[in-house]
């Protein structure tokens, strides 16, 4: 009872009430996303998105509810959905392909996830924690996997039945050569200059800031790697200049 008088929260939610300013700040970030108006045109409340949504069949999650919360600017409801529900979306975009109003509920969830990360929400940290190895590789090398790394051994979450479809992949790959096959050996060996360009992209696009909010340890590890590579590149440039100097003069 006391709690209710302290702040007005979502009466349906069990999570503690959040300050109005924070709710507004979160929504402002969602609404100002360049794609927001493109993904949301209003809503007929027809339920097609939820009916086709694979996640809605397994979780307490409904894309129509997400759209409704956003369209009606239900700030408490939006904030509450960001604590768990938005992470149930599989980002398959079936909803967007079917919505008779031309909305993309999956796209809206993506925007909400970005906002959850920006605001350092615990739900985002929890979801991303198991992916720190993946993020380390993607951010430091720009590449997560080579084709031969995609096997049941590396992905216990595929479950026990994966053995049924487990074929001799290495043999098959040689029989049906794929354009990516040459990356088997080199997946994580990235050209120095390319790495540096990649780092500029991470910095400019805000990915590094997001990482810092989500996982400070990982951020430290990755910035160390980046610094190291930048030093390597500077050294290499100096070497080049020395050689050039020798030639030109």
């Amino acid at each position: 009872m006391n709690q209710a008088s302290a702040a007005i929260g979502d009466p349906l939610s069990e999570s503690p009430a959040v300050a109005r300013e924070e709710l507004e700040a979160v929504f402002a970030d969602i609404q100002s996303h360049p794609l927001y108006d493109h993904e949301l045109n209003g809503c007929l409340n027809c339920g097609i998105c939820t009916a086709t949504c694979p996640s809605a069949h397994y979780y307490d999650y409904s894309p129509r509810e997400i759209v409704q919360l956003l369209w009606t600017e239900n700030l408490e409801g939006i904030h509450d959905a960001m604590q768990e529900k938005i992470w149930a979306c599989a980002q398959c975009y079936t909803c967007a392909a079917r919505c008779p109003f031309g909305n993309s509920p999956g796209g809206l969830v993506m925007i909400m996830r970005e906002a959850a990360i920006k605001h350092g929400m615990e739900s985002a940290k929890e979801v991303l924690r198991p992916f720190s190895r993946v993020m380390l590789k993607v951010i430091s090398t720009g590449n997560q996997l080579a084709p031969n790394m995609i096997n049941a051994e590396h992905f216990p979450d595929w479950g026990p039945h994966i053995s049924k479809v487990d074929a001799p992949l290495t043999v098959l790959r040689k029989a049906i050569p794929m354009p990516t096959l040459h990356t088997l050996e080199t997946a994580w060996e990235v050209n120095l200059k390319t790495s540096l360009e990649l780092y500029v992209i991470w910095e400019e696009s805000g990915v590094l800031d997001q990482l810092e909010t989500m996982d400070e340890n990982l951020f430290d590890v990755i910035t160390d790697i980046m610094e190291e590579k930048r030093d390597d590149y500077d050294d290499w440039l100096e070497d080049q200049e020395d050689e050039d100097g020798d030639d030109d003069d």
Binding site: C46, G47, I48, T52, R64, E65
Partner: peptide, 12 residues
């Protein structure tokens, strides 16, 4: 037939 009963908010 697959849909969502939007009033009770469940896929059907």
């Amino acid at each position: 037939v697959k849909g969502e009963d939007t009033l009770v908010k469940r896929p059907i």
